[in-house]
Amino acid sequence: MLNFRLTGRGLWIAFLIIPPLAVMVTFVAYPIVSALAYAFYDWNGLQRGEFVWFENFRIVLFQEPFAEWTRRAFMHNVIVFFSLMVVQNGFGFILAYALWREPFGAAFHRVAVFLPVVLSTVIIGFLWKLFFHPIFGVVNQSLRAVGLDDLAQPWLGQSETALGALIFVNAWAWVGFPTLVFLAGLQRIPPELLDAARMETDNEWILIRKIVWPLIAPSATIVFILLFIGSFNWFELPYIMVGLDGSPFGSTDVLGLYFYRTAFGNQSAGVQDFGQGSALAVLIFAFIAVVAAFWTVRLRRREIQI
């Protein structure tokens, strides 16, 4: 065994820190910086062309039909985010609140609600795609079984319901995450504090609003921000369930799909444009970073003002 003390502690520290640092620089820092640079070039397939200033940004933001696609995809991400905020995080909080009382079977319910979180989005997407099949899918079969034949419909095949179906599947798959993060927050509330509050009021609603909610603010911050980042990066679930074009008729097209189509092309139209793709990536990234940063600061401030 080598004695590193002889060669100096500095060398030992360098030996420890340089390999991981090299990985981060090569595969994180350099690609992120390049992504920014690439957006300012004209691309010919995989070949980088001239420096074109903001031309790629102008095209994706202001030139039709690209601008229209960008707007439409962005609006769908906004809808996804707000819907999941209500359904996924809202229901997650209610479940956490129920589990917090440690009712009979709480351990089992906790394991059950988190199960879909560990499954691959690909498995979940295909499973629900089969379930949503208009004729043989379990969803419509269940509706017919209980006499709600009128409600049975091609959920993924029509523009009015496709995005909603995707949002439902996402909430089903991920509700366990906010549930358990909120639960961990609830479990850290000192019992004395709650007992004291209970002496003042019987009203559960007031208790939640004035005592519980402010005390689990740190959990809320992290759940909100992660959902925000996830919603604007949404790709796998729509890709599996409705395809790269966001069918039907682009009614489920989101920024992730649009970015992928632009950068790598799709089977039908094999055009790929790394310049416009990079511009989209930079815009999505900047949007996420700016909003997440401001929102985190606001949410954190709320945490202190208890």
């Binding site: 992120i32 970015f259 950068a263 996420i288």
Partner: peptide, 16 residues
């Protein structure tokens, strides 16, 4: 690195 979605650097990674 925790906050950077590496997915958005997919083009440079592909070229690298």
């Amino acid at each position: 690195g925790l906050t950077l979605p590496l997915k958005l650097a997919i083009i440079p990674l592909f070229i690298l």
